[in-house]
Simulated scan of single mutants.
Amino acid sequence: MLGSVLALAVAGTAGAVFLWPVGVAPEPIELSGDAGRGAYLARASGCIACHTNFERGGAPLAGGVELATPFGTFYSPNLTTDPENGIGRWSIEDFAMAVRQGVSPEGEPYYPSFTYPFYGDFSDQDIADLWAAFQTVPPVAEVPPDHEVGFPFNMRWGLKLWRAAFLRDPETESVEGRDDVWNRGRELARGAAHCGACHTGRNIAGARLETAFYAGNDDLPGGDHAPSIQIEHLVEQGWTVDSIVYALETGITPSGDVFGGGMGEVVQYGTSFLTPEDRLAIATYIMDPGDDLPDPE
Rank of each mutant, 00 (worst) to 15 (best):
G57R: 03
E27S: 12
A128S: 07
E297A: 14
Q230S: 06
P109Y: 03
D257L: 14
P152N: 01
N203M: 00
L159V: 09
R163Q: 13
L79D: 09
P294E: 06
L67M: 14
G216V: 01
E55M: 10
E30D: 11
P21I: 00
G64S: 08
W157M: 07
G88H: 01
E148N: 12
I204C: 08
A197I: 07
T13H: 10
R37I: 15
E148T: 12
Q135C: 05
A205D: 09
L6S: 11
G158W: 07
A164G: 12
D94K: 06
V140D: 12
G102A: 06
H233F: 12
L220C: 06
G150S: 15
C47M: 02
S4I: 14
D219T: 13
A247I: 03
F54A: 15
E30G: 11
A68L: 12
G58A: 05
W182E: 00
A35V: 06
R156G: 11
V143Q: 15
G86D: 06
R89V: 07
D295W: 13
G107Y: 01
T271M: 05
G72I: 07
I48K: 13
D180W: 09
D129P: 02
W157E: 11
A14R: 09
A141I: 05
F118V: 07
E171N: 13
G238C: 05
T81A: 10
M263G: 09
V137M: 11
S76D: 13
Q268I: 10
G3Y: 07
G102M: 00
G23N: 01
A98V: 13
G206I: 03
T250H: 04
M1E: 13
R178F: 04
L161A: 10
E171S: 13
R168W: 09
L130N: 09
F259V: 09
R279D: 05
G38S: 01
L220Q: 01
F54G: 12
M97C: 09
Q230M: 03
T271Q: 01
M1D: 12
L274M: 11
R56W: 09
A44V: 15
F213D: 08
S32C: 09
G58E: 08
T115M: 12
D179N: 10
L293C: 11
T284K: 05
T200R: 01
P21E: 01
G64C: 10
N217P: 02
F273V: 08
G150N: 10
L167R: 12
Y40K: 03
D94E: 00
T240F: 04
S91K: 00
D94M: 02
G46A: 04
G63L: 03
A283Y: 02
L234Q: 02
V175G: 07
S104M: 13
D242G: 03
A14N: 10
A7H: 11
A197N: 14
T240S: 13
F134A: 06
P70N: 07
T271W: 05
L167E: 13
G216Q: 02
A283R: 01
R56D: 14
G191N: 03
E148I: 13
E84R: 11
V103A: 01
E210V: 14
L293V: 08
P221G: 06
G191T: 00
L19P: 06
A44Y: 08
D218T: 09
G23R: 01
I244V: 09
D291S: 15
P109H: 01
A98H: 11
S113C: 13
D278F: 10
A283H: 01
L79T: 08
H233D: 15
G150K: 04
